[in-house]
């Protein structure tokens, strides 16, 4: 992409303004993340010297990670978060893909009614208290399924996907039907393979949602032995550092290892919550615009 010939070149002020804006925008996001990750790898001495977060790497160590990985609470919460994310995403994708395809055929029986049934929930909901009462009366208190089932369906995602599916070339579907394929077969071997972008993006949306889910754990999982990572982050890093004298801080459990700063332990927990997102991100990122918009506008 190059600038069109008729466009007058930017003046020096415009150029500088644009460059500075872009630089600031990127720096405001990346510098905090960089310094958090760096601090998690820094020694007590380096942190003392910096007076807090480290911005220039001096002495590096993986001691913080060695210690949080020997902590049962943290390792267990990591497993809980990974399991909830894997199981939840798989379930949500199956439900979403099926429903989106089931509603993608114009003129199919009842599809308008079902669509209305779905869309109403986007505009009005029972709200927090009735949902809490329903989930607990189903025996959800203290159960892992409360992290998945109540939020398993996103109507928005179904609509985005449905928009894509109904755009699948009808001649492909007709050809498959001529060959005797039923709806399940058409979905699996015709529609899904031509909708990779939207499938990738929506999988990421669901996975991130489960990985980040915090409030449902606060509501339904009182026992810290069942907590996902976000609850550990909240309790031991966020509250631990902002509430003088209150709450539980990470230090107690590591009394025997004074050489590692509490701050780097906390930043190691932050880094753990960051890693899966940053790792998954590049694979899906190029589909964002396509995956988001085409479907959303049609839907």
């Amino acid at each position: 992409m190059t600038a069109p010939v008729w466009e007058e070149p930017l003046g020096p002020v415009g150029k500088a303004g644009k460059g500075i804006t872009l630089f600031l925008v990127v720096a405001v996001i990346l510098v905090p993340l960089y310094s958090i990750v760096l601090t998690s790898f820094s020694t007590q001495a380096a942190i003392n010297e910096a007076g807090g977060l480290v911005t220039v790497p001096t002495e590096l160590t993986v001691e913080a990670y060695r210690q949080i990985f020997t902590n049962q609470l943290v390792t267990h919460s990591l497993l809980v978060s990974l399991a909830i994310t894997a199981v939840g995403t798989a379930l949500s994708m199956v439900v979403t893909v099926l429903c989106a395809y089931g509603l993608s055929r114009h003129g199919s029986l009842g599809h308008r009614g079902i669509l209305l049934f779905l869309v109403v929930t986007m505009f009005f909901s029972g709200g927090l208290i009735p949902t809490f009462l329903v989930v607990t009366s189903l025996g959800g208190y203290g159960e892992y399924w409360t992290m998945i089932l109540p939020s398993a369906v996103s109507v928005f995602n179904i609509l985005v996907m449905r928009g894509f599916f109904s755009g699948t070339a009808p001649e492909l579907i007709d050809a498959a039907r001529m060959d005797g394929a039923g709806e399940w077969r058409i979905l699996w071997s015709v529609v899904l393979p031509t909708s990779r972008a939207v499938t990738a993006v929506i999988t990421l949306f669901y996975a991130v949602g489960y990985w980040n889910s915090f409030f449902n754990a606060l509501l339904y999982l009182p026992d810290n032995g069942k907590w996902p990572l976000q609850m550990i982050l909240y309790t031991y890093t966020l509250q631990g550092s902002s509430m003088p004298g209150g709450g539980v801080t990470g230090t107690g459990q590591y009394a025997g290892h004074q050489q590692i700063a509490q701050l780097s332990l906390q930043m190691a927990v932050v880094t753990l919550t960051l890693i899966p997102i940053v790792v998954a991100y590049p694979f899906v990122q190029r589909h964002f615009t396509k995956g988001m918009l085409t479907g959303a506008i049609k839907g």
């Binding site: 009005f124 029972g126 949902t131």
Partner: peptide, 29 residues
Amino acid sequence: RDRSLLLMTLPAVVLLAVFAYVPMLGLVT
């Protein structure tokens, strides 16, 4: 003709019925 399509929407409809519509009724609280 459309029974497979209807069946496919069923899981989502059930989940929304339980976790979105029943709470709406629960607003009676």
